[in-house]
Amino acid sequence: MVKIRLKKFGTKKRPAYRIVVQDSRKPRDGTTIEEIGTYDPIAAGEQFSVKEDRAKYWISVGAQPSDTVRKLFSTKGLNK
């Protein structure tokens, strides 16, 4: 199954995440199919950016967002 989930990067005590499309059997920081956005929970201001057209495409072909990504998408109005 293909999932849309967070991939961690950044430094110690300063996490940041990429929103990626990835096979659910791969490890969190493993190879990805496509990177579609970023999320920085510590940053002030714009914390979340996503390529909306690509997110809608992947959802339309059956990719399932993780719970956290689903909550982020709801702030941008990208729910099913």
Results as ranks from 00 to 15, higher is better:
13 K>D: 11
26 K>Y: 09
9 F>D: 02
33 I>C: 02
35 E>A: 08
78 L>D: 07
57 Y>L: 10
60 S>Q: 00
46 E>C: 11
68 T>E: 03
33 I>W: 13
79 N>I: 03
65 P>H: 02
60 S>D: 12
35 E>V: 08
67 D>N: 02
4 I>Y: 01
26 K>F: 10
72 L>C: 08
65 P>C: 12
9 F>K: 00
28 R>S: 10
24 S>G: 03
77 G>Q: 14
69 V>S: 05
31 T>N: 07
78 L>N: 02
75 T>W: 01
28 R>G: 08
42 I>Y: 14
1 M>Q: 08
78 L>K: 07
70 R>Y: 08
55 A>Q: 11
57 Y>M: 07
30 G>K: 06
28 R>Y: 08
77 G>W: 11
48 F>L: 12
10 G>W: 04
48 F>K: 02
25 R>A: 10
43 A>N: 10
60 S>K: 06
68 T>L: 08
65 P>G: 13
73 F>C: 03
70 R>P: 07
75 T>M: 02
57 Y>H: 01
67 D>M: 06
57 Y>C: 04
36 I>M: 04
8 K>N: 12
37 G>E: 07
69 V>C: 01
35 E>N: 05
11 T>P: 04
33 I>H: 01
72 L>M: 14
25 R>S: 09
39 Y>R: 06
8 K>G: 11
23 D>T: 09
59 I>F: 10
56 K>C: 02
64 Q>R: 14
24 S>F: 07
61 V>P: 11
56 K>S: 01
70 R>I: 08
58 W>Y: 15
39 Y>M: 12
78 L>V: 09
5 R>C: 05
34 E>G: 08
69 V>A: 02
24 S>M: 10
37 G>M: 01
75 T>V: 05
58 W>F: 15
3 K>H: 12
33 I>S: 02
72 L>N: 13
17 Y>C: 05
75 T>F: 04
9 F>P: 13
25 R>I: 04
62 G>R: 13
77 G>D: 09
3 K>L: 01
31 T>F: 09
4 I>R: 09
7 K>A: 07
74 S>C: 12
66 S>V: 05
64 Q>P: 08
29 D>K: 12
11 T>H: 09
45 G>Y: 00
9 F>G: 04
34 E>T: 11
10 G>R: 04
54 R>K: 15
51 K>M: 06
34 E>Q: 11
67 D>P: 01
14 R>G: 05
30 G>V: 13
36 I>Y: 04
7 K>C: 01
78 L>P: 00
14 R>Q: 10
74 S>N: 13
64 Q>N: 00
9 F>T: 01
76 K>G: 10
35 E>Q: 12
23 D>I: 00
8 K>C: 09
27 P>E: 08
42 I>E: 14
41 P>T: 09
19 I>R: 08
41 P>W: 11
13 K>A: 10
39 Y>F: 15
73 F>L: 11
31 T>M: 10
23 D>F: 07
24 S>T: 03
39 Y>S: 08
43 A>E: 09
45 G>H: 13
52 E>M: 09
53 D>R: 06
6 L>C: 10
34 E>N: 08
69 V>E: 14
26 K>H: 13
1 M>W: 05
71 K>E: 15
65 P>Q: 01
25 R>D: 02
64 Q>K: 15
79 N>E: 15
20 V>C: 07
53 D>K: 12
16 A>G: 07
2 V>M: 15
21 V>I: 11
75 T>Y: 11
